[in-house]
Nucleic acid binder design. Structure first.
Lengths: 307, 307
DNA sequence: AGCGACCCATAAGTTGAGGTTATGAACCTT
DNA sequence: AAGGTTCATAACCTCAACTTATGGGTCGCT
């Protein structure tokens, strides 16, 4: 099976017909027909049954599908990486961060750093941890900031700061007298939390943490990003447990932050490619990130803000 | 980057020169040169520096290497699967097992089963768990027998029997009076074991088990398969801890088996493809495997043999 | 039944990527 | 300087993959 066979096979499977596949690939319909025939001839078995003028995939075609997908995926990977390699010689830094950090820690830190390096082009992007790792490997970014990372060969990881998740609620949710004290975990019992969709690795940690609460908190609304949870709380939707970066960038007027006890620790990681000379201007940037992060995560300050 | 570009890139990287790559690919040297040039033109950056008539990979080439490997790997996967799909309609069963089982449990069980199904072609193969899983997915085999399996989407797993690892030593290693009793784990302290190379998942379990022994046993000889360990012990090399299937097929004259206490449990798994009608003759075969395995793993019998 | 609108397959002609042989230019070894 | 490497270039060939044009199914609608 040559590459063109695979491309056409997939196009037919996606569109359901030879003619539609031809449109998708911007070639004529006979071209697709012929390549398909050639593929089937070379394979030794039919991929589709021509039943009453229409196509119907054979079991063999279905079996091949997943393997074939791997090929196009990996080939896309090569193209992605090649594209990044094509135009990297420019003096620039590309930084990716998870949404929570991209909207809180990242902007002021970048501004501060830019004062020292005004001439260096800087591209910022926001994505989830999984994608950030891919983008690093594909050289689409040079640095990633995340709160959950479990090691990857080819990447070096660096701890910038340590902190703990916090509880965020609409103002008035807690009595004034308590709002400056740490929130005992038990107080979350049977609360109606705004939860994170469990695909998030940090959400899994949180679930583990909440398992000790009885009766367990109810998750009535699930959101995908921390910022969404924050926005929900700002609109008065109730209470959530999120990272302090996102929490601290919420509007003071409508919400109230409390630390949790016992604390649920989180770590701020910086990821870079291993085996590569990290531009030394990145060292300064990491310095800034670390300092600012530690300032934000300093719990007394959180309490001060609550007061 | 088209597929041919990738093939030629890899051939050059493997052989180190354009001419040698041409030989490897069974084409002329100018053909390779031209395709390489085309690849570099399309990529926008050189893959190799022509330094003093020789080639030298650029950093970009090195960066692309791993991604490019994924493509050929996955393409090989398609070819493998396609080949299996090409000629499967025959009435036959292909069975793969890890070496330990292929040399002990498998042969007599197959013989017994063949009496009921004399006309069904039967192919047996021996490979490691990892490869067995691949071969199942690629439809190169229909059934796999293994002792360590940690689940895989697309495969269904079935427990045939449970047992425990045993200690195997040359005759005379233990005093006669003790050789029919279970061997306490502590007795392995500072023993000189024949170990398994730690790539094996079962060996990892064993390592975990032995961590409790102090002083730890010394691994002076490491082997890759259980049968090799058995053969070493049969030649009088000392003591090893292996699966009971391999142990029981050792020659009674020169070795002695003892169960361990506490036991280190193992499980015999049968793996088949999910979403497929398993030929019902396989059910009988699994029955036979299970019965025979449980007979062998029945600890009293092990002790009886020791007596 | 007849018509149009879709399917896919076939025929005949064009193009270019990838192949060939032959040759040249640069380098290393002896 | 000679002979053996290396890779690059030139001129030619071939066939897979494309094109347009056409024809024969199967459907649904009147």
């Amino acid at each position: 099976m040559r590459l063109r066979h695979i491309e056409i096979f997939q196009a037919i499977r996606q569109t359901g017909s030879v003619s539609a596949a031809a449109q998708l690939l911007h070639v004529s319909q006979p071209a697709v027909t012929k390549v398909l025939q050639h593929a089937e001839l070379q394979l030794g078995f039919p991929l589709f049954l021509r039943i009453r003028g229409k196509l119907q995939p054979t079991p063999e075609a279905l079996a091949l599908e997943s393997e074939v997908e791997k090929v196009t995926k990996s080939l896309q990977g090569v193209q992605r990486l090649a594209k990044s390699l094509r135009h990297t010689p420019e003096q620039s830094v590309r930084i990716g961060a998870i949404p929570a950090l991209a909207q809180s820690l990242l902007p002021p830190s970048i501004l501060e750093w830019k004062r020292s390096y005004p001439d260096i082009a800087c591209e910022l992007s926001s994505d989830h941890s999984r994608e950030l790792v891919q983008q690093l490997l594909m050289r689409e970014i040079d640095l990633a900031l995340t709160l959950n990372f479990s090691g990857h060969p080819g990447l070096t990881t660096q701890v910038l700061a340590n902190g703990a998740l916090v509880a965020l609620a609409s103002k008035g949710y807690w009595p004034e007298s308590e709002s400056h004290k740490a929130l005992p975990l038990a107080d979350l019992a049977s609360a109606s939390l705004i939860g994170l969709s469990s695909a998030d690795p940090l959400a899994a940690k949180l679930d583990n943490y909440l398992v000790n609460v009885s009766p367990p908190p109810q998750i009535s609304i699930s959101v995908q990003t921390y910022s969404l949870a924050r926005a929900m709380v700002e609109s008065g939707a109730g209470i959530t447990v999120i990272d302090p970066f996102t929490a601290l960038s919420a509007s003071t007027a409508t919400v109230c932050i409390r630390t949790l006890t016992p604390p649920l620790p989180i770590t701020l990681y910086a990821l870079t490619r291993a085996h590569e000379p990290p531009p030394h201007m990145l060292a300064d940037l990491l310095q800034i990130f670390g300092t600012r992060a530690r300032e934000l995560l300093d719990l007394p300050q959180v309490r001060a803000r609550n007061a």
